[in-house]
């Protein structure tokens, strides 16, 4: 019984890894040979797909846009959420509890509810098809989760720290910046990472708001590329190279900071 269980788990693990490996291997093969033999090896490996995806497929510009939008929006989101979460965690009044609840309720709102209003609102101030517009949307979308995550995190930091700082004559703001934030570094990095991952993969708003070819992010580039193939003929090699460009940073981040990512996404749910 136990042995069957373990075998199944390992089969699933191997299947997941095989899928990743297959995507990577296929990105090194030319389209005709993929068509003839989907499971073949790249003999010889074709770096050409990657070069083509990077240069002609529009993935290079999109990759840079994705990095920019994801990094800036995550940074600002954490910078806004951290003081708010700290204040909410430390002050337990009726207003504070109500606000904590209001932020948490946002977790239950599916993105499509905000789609039309945000599009109309951004169009009114001419921020559709603009990096600023998309970044601002991502900051807004990040608020509920980031505040929720960091509130839990700050609540776990002992008050003694600020008390000691206060005795030493530090103001509240100074104690927050000099004493609390350094201690909270781990939580802030986690919040940034999770928001970065979220923004990197976000598709609905990116596809709705960004229309110019030079402003799209990676998921939109992939959707457009697949759409183009219907007219321009299939080019699976390049498409798989594009998929790899979306996957690569996630694989890298996860291998490097996997424990932190897993903890951030799962710890706190049990509380």
């Amino acid at each position: 019984m136990r042995r069957i269980g373990h075998t199944i788990v390992w089969l699933l693990v191997v299947a997941d890894l095989a899928l990743l490996a297959w995507i990577f291997v296929t990105s090194l093969r030319d389209t005709q040979s993929i068509f003839n033999e989907p499971f073949g090896l790249p003999v010889p490996p074709q770096g050409g797909n990657w070069a083509k995806a990077w240069a002609d497929g529009g993935f290079s510009g999109a990759a840079i846009n994705s990095v920019g939008v994801a990094a800036v929006s995550s940074l600002v989101a954490v910078a806004l959420a951290a003081p708010a979460a700290y204040a909410l965690a430390r002050r337990r009044t009726r207003t504070s509890n109500a606000l904590t609840m209001t932020f948490a309720l946002g977790l239950g709102v599916p993105g499509q509810v905000l789609l039309v209003p945000l599009f109309v609102g951004l169009a009114a101030v001419e921020l559709t098809d603009s990096f600023i517009g998309l970044t601002v949307v991502y900051i807004g979308l990040a608020m509920p989760f980031t505040v929720y995550l960091l509130t839990g995190f700050f609540a776990g930091i002992p008050v003694v720290l600020e008390e000691a700082a206060a005795i030493d004559g530090a103001s509240g703001l100074r104690a927050f910046v000099k004493v609390v934030l350094p201690v909270a570094r781990g939580g802030l990095i986690t919040a940034f990472l999770l928001q970065f991952i979220g923004a990197w993969n976000e598709t609905l708003f990116a596809i709705a708001l960004m229309t110019s070819d030079d402003k799209i992010t990676l998921p939109v580039a992939l959707v457009n590329f697949v759409g183009l193939q219907q007219y321009a003929g299939r080019d699976w090699g390049t498409m798989f190279a594009g998929i790899c460009i979306i996957l690569a940073p996630m694989v890298a981040l996860f291998s490097w900071l996997g424990t932190r990512i897993i903890q951030g996404m799962t710890v706190g749910i049990g509380k």
Binding site: S96, P117, G140
Partner: peptide, 23 residues
Amino acid sequence: LFWPFVGPALAFYALLFLAPIAY
């Protein structure tokens, strides 16, 4: 410090989340 700390996040949240739901 409560309102200066919570205010900015709340403003973003209200403008980009709560108001859009009503809209």
